[in-house]
Structures are given as structure tokens and as C-alpha cells.
């Protein structure tokens, strides 16, 4: 695996630096001294066994939780949601039921005090990209679960975030919907040039999406290994190389 990684040396500038990130709740050490970088416009998947601290890891990145020690730098500055443009797709449904589809997509931009005409332009673009034009005035109660999820993903991409964090966004979807939304994320990522950290426990999903996969070890979580997936998008899950990657990561992740 390592020789494949060395073939392509990434020259994109570093966007996010995670330095000695440690988080403990009382005596319970959850994240143990994580160090890694994410480059501009990179798509990184984080995989690890259930309960290893994946969500805590994300919550530290967005400052929902303060790390116990260590820091996260974006463009060389300590990450701060007020200053940086972060966006988070939560595992739980996070659509605002009281707002229409377009208002939901616009809400993060409003918080960021983006000018009105710019908000309109970006919302229109996302509505087009996500095929939500027909339901722009609809309330979430009238949407299917998967459409609602598309709104949420659209909302986070509309921010044109410095860093987009996704926490098992497709955990509760059936396989068809998942494939569809995975392609959607890839398309948006390419189209808008965002930097994405995608958390999942689904190894196939990670190999399908990521340019680079970070494998977390069991609690307390540390980075066990980085795997660069050197396959062009869109990927074919039946490609022998794809299967090779998948099996390799599965072997690495095994904690039993």
C-alpha cells in the first residue's frame, strides 16, 4: 500500500492542521494525541470501530467541545466558528422544521452575514445542483427523509466552507439512497472545491469516497494508519483494486 501512496505527492496547500489533539472526559481519555494535516480541497474519510470517539473527534474540530489539549488550525489560525467558515452535517436529522427548503439552505449564510443577493445566488445554485428547485417553498414535513437529507447536505455546501465535516450522514439510509447521495457529495465536492472530512463506519463508503482514509484505533482513539486511495472518481466497487483497498482497511480496523 505504501508504495502507491508515494507515487502521487500532493502539492495542494495545507488547509487544516491538527496538532496533538487530546480530549478526555474526566478520567476517560477519548482522543489520544492526534496529529494530521488536511490539504485544500481534499476529501478525507475517517473510519474506526463504533464508539471509538469519531463523533467526539468531530465535535472538537467544530469547537462544540473544547479539546483538553492540543489545537486545530485552519489556514494557520486556531479554528473558531465565528471566524472560520465551518459546516457540519450531523448524524441526527438537523433540518429546521419551521423553515422552508430555501430558508434552510440560506440559514448558515445569514448567520455569516453574507449579502442578500449573494445568498440568493448561492441558494439558487444549490437548489439546481441538488434538484430541489420544485420544493424550494416546501416545509420539511412534506419532504421524504432522503430529500430532507439532501437539503441538509445542500445547506452545508452552500456555506462554501473552509472545512465541511460530515458525521455518518448516510447511516440510516438504504443502499440505493446511499449510493445516490454518495455520488451527490462527490459531485458537489468537485464542483465547489470544498475540503471535506467524512466520518463513517462503513469501509466501502470510505473507499468509495475518500482520497485519503484515516483509520482510528479503538478507544482511546489515535490514528492507526493513513491510506491514500489512488483511484479516479467515479469508482467502481467491483474493481479488484477497490476490493483490495477495502479488504486492507477492514483488516487494519479489526479490533476483535
Amino acid at each position: 500500500m505504501e508504495n502507491i501512496a508515494e507515487k502521487n505527492i500532493d502539492t495542494r496547500p495545507i488547509k487544516v492542521e491538527v496538532k496533538n489533539l487530546t480530549k478526555s472526559f474526566g478520567d476517560l481519555l477519548v482522543l489520544d494525541n492526534l496529529n494530521f494535516n488536511i490539504r485544500q480541497n481534499e476529501f478525507v474519510c475517517v473510519v474506526g470501530p463504533t464508539g471509538c470517539g469519531k463523533t467526539t473527534f468531530l465535535n472538537c474540530l467544530t469547537r462544540i467541545l473544547e479539546p483538553t489539549s492540543g489545537d486545530l488550525l485552519i489556514n494557520g489560525e486556531s479554528a473558531d466558528p465565528k471566524k472560520h467558515n465551518l459546516s457540519f452535517v450531523f448524524q441526527e436529522p438537523s433540518i429546521f422544521p419551521w423553515a422552508t427548503v430555501e430558508k434552510n439552505i440560506a440559514c448558515g449564510l445569514e448567520v455569516k452575514r453574507v449579502p442578500k443577493d449573494e445568498i440568493e445566488r448561492r441558494v439558487d445554485r444549490i437548489l439546481d445542483l441538488m434538484g430541489l428547485r420544485d420544493v424550494r417553498k416546501a416545509y420539511p414535513k412534506d419532504l421524504s427523509v432522503s430529500t430532507a437529507q439532501r437539503v441538509i447536505i445542500g445547506r452545508s455546501f452552500a456555506m462554501q466552507p473552509d472545512l465541511l465535516l460530515m458525521d455518518e450522514p448516510y447511516g440510516q439510509m438504504d443502499i440505493k439512497m446511499r449510493y445516490y447521495l454518495e455520488d451527490e457529495v462527490i459531485r458537489l465536492w468537485k464542483e465547489l472545491g470544498s475540503t471535506v472530512v467524512f466520518i463513517t463506519h462503513n469501509i466501502e463508503e470510505a473507499v468509495y469516497l475518500a482520497e485519503r482514509v484515516l483509520i482510528l484505533s479503538n478507544k482511546p482513539a489515535g490514528i492507526k494508519e493513513e491510506v491514500i486511495i489512488d483511484l479516479p472518481h467515479p469508482r467502481d466497487i467491483t474493481d479488484p483494486k477497490f476490493i483490495e483497498y477495502r479488504n486492507y482497511i477492514t483488516d487494519q480496523i479489526k479490533w476483535w
Partner: peptide, 8 residues
């Protein structure tokens, strides 16, 4: 939390 990550 969502609003928090938006910086509100």
C-alpha cells in the same frame, strides 16, 4: 450545535 458551528 448546528448554529454554533455556523458561528452564531
Amino acid at each position: 450545535n448546528l448554529m454554533k458551528t455556523f458561528g452564531a
